[in-house]
Design a protein around this nucleic acid. Structure first.
Length: 258
DNA sequence: ACGCAGGCTCGCT
DNA sequence: GAGCGAGCCTGCG
């Protein structure tokens, strides 16, 4: 619980920041929150004047406004007021699964955490990537578990699509809101979860086309267009390379060119 | 051969 | 500097 003194100090600092120009005081001092529909039911969304800063599903807080507000306070450390509507763009972003240029306020996170979230945000709707892929994209190829930890602290799930990051062995992996919600989200995005599982059962983690000699992650949009007779499965990228394939430039199943 | 549980390890906070 | 995993790997049954 923050004390009155903490709040006063905070207000003083914020007022100092305000000095330069005319602004909406209320917008600067208070975060705002409201609920909005999403593919997995009502979600609570909080935002500051800089963008969305926190999101929880109604389910995850038992539909209890107070529980959401406690969690928000832990994340934000400043007061929040209820708003009638979410910031512009939030509802479409949730509906489409594409945050696009929706402003997010990720202050308070480490550089590492922000890098993880930024890389994750680039995974297209309907596709998945392994934790290792995210680690490679942020130039920390061995920090796979730290990536997982960072995603576990994602303050804005759904908007930053951490549900699209799955385990290398084909398992769906964990999720803030539970594995079942993760799977539901992926199915709603038309990820063929069953096919991915079937392939993993045969230790196939990559798909290539023998007409183009390109290998992809199985959920890559390009992989899904490979016609049956030309589909080749691979267990590793090294194996695919030995067979004369190169990694897809869209899904980038291997960062290290060779 | 395969699914599973346990142990282990590695960066980050 | 210790603790902590939304993972990974291995060995067993």
């Amino acid at each position: 619980m923050a004390t009155g003194e903490d709040d006063l100090a905070r207000v003083a600092r914020m007022l100092a920041e305000l000095a330069p120009g005319p602004v909406d005081l209320t917008g600067r001092l208070f975060a705002q929150w409201c609920t909005v529909g999403s593919p997995v039911g009502e979600v609570y969304v909080a935002s500051t004047d800089r963008g969305v800063c926190y999101l929880r599903t109604g389910e995850s807080v038992g539909g209890d406004d107070q529980r959401f507000l406690e969690q928000l306070r832990d994340r934000l450390g400043r007061p929040a007021r209820r708003a009638a509507r979410p910031p512009a763009g939030v509802a479409p972003a949730l509906r489409s699964g594409r945050p696009g240029r929706l402003p997010l306020d990720l202050r308070g996170l480490s550089d590492f955490e922000r890098a993880v979230l930024e890389a994750t945000a680039r995974i297209p709707v309907g596709e998945t990537r392994p934790y290792r892929w995210v680690a490679e994209r942020i130039a920390r190829p061995t920090a796979v578990r730290a990536v997982a930890s960072a995603l576990g602290r994602n303050p804005v799930p759904l908007l930053i699509p951490c549900h699209r990051v799955t385990r290398a062995n084909g398992d769906i992996g964990g999720y803030v809101f539970g594995g079942q919600v993760k799977e539901r989200l992926l199915r709603l995005e038309d990820v063929n979860v069953d096919e991915v599982n079937d392939l993993a059962g045969e230790h196939v983690y990559f798909l290539g086309s023998d007409t183009t000699n390109i290998v992809c992650f199985p959920t890559c949009h390009h992989a899904r267009r490979i016609t049956e007779p030309h589909r080749q499965g691979f267990r590793t990228i090294a194996q695919a390379r030995r067979a004369g394939y190169r990694p897809c430039k869209h899904c980038k199943p291997a960062e290290l060119a060779a």
